[in-house]
């Protein structure tokens, strides 16, 4: 199986985080440091084994590695941020439950740290008829 980034995305590395915008879905995501390193690798179709190696380089060991990578890839796919050449159904579901928040582990597990919506009104200004009040709203809503 190979996984790669989806289209219609923008991203930047900010401090230790990688911030990704899904332009079509109008959403913003924050990936932690190790998640950001995996994100860099996903610029081209990448095997899960390669992604697992990145997590191992980050200090995670044992069975947790596969679980962590699969869980992360499934999370990214559910948000429309990656595509895979094989179905991801079931991946990450039967993982031994890793205590991803345990001391010494959480920073080594790739993760979407946060998700936020971006409200945008430019698109709503196209061919508005009698509804331009929508264009008068501010970007964050009331």
């Amino acid at each position: 199986m190979k996984v790669t980034r989806a289209e219609c995305l923008a991203w930047r590395k900010i401090d230790q985080e990688t911030v990704v915008i899904h332009l079509a879905e109008r959403k913003m995501f924050g990936l932690n440091d190790i998640g950001g390193r995996m994100w860099e690798a996903l610029s081209a179709p990448t095997t899960l084994e390669r992604l697992e190696a990145i997590v191992v380089e980050g200090g995670l060991e044992g069975a947790n590695v596969i679980d962590a990578v699969e869980r992360f890839i499934v999370d990214l796919a559910e948000e429309g941020l990656v595509m895979s050449d094989e179905p991801l159904e079931g991946r990450g579901d039967d993982a031994e439950v890793v205590d991803f928040m345990a001391p010494g582990v959480s920073g080594r597990v790739p993760r979407i740290e946060w998700r936020e919506e971006i409200r945008q009104f430019a698109g709503q200004c196209h061919f508005l008829s009698g509804q331009s009040h929508q264009c008068n709203q501010h970007p964050g809503g009331s």
Binding site: W11, L23, M28, I118, P139, G140
Partner: peptide
Amino acid sequence: SDAIRELRRHLYWPLDEEKAADATF
């Protein structure tokens, strides 16, 4: 990163135009 997360609410994003959105970001 927290600043980006917060400021996103107060910007007008040209999300319909990919290049403009990327440049804004």
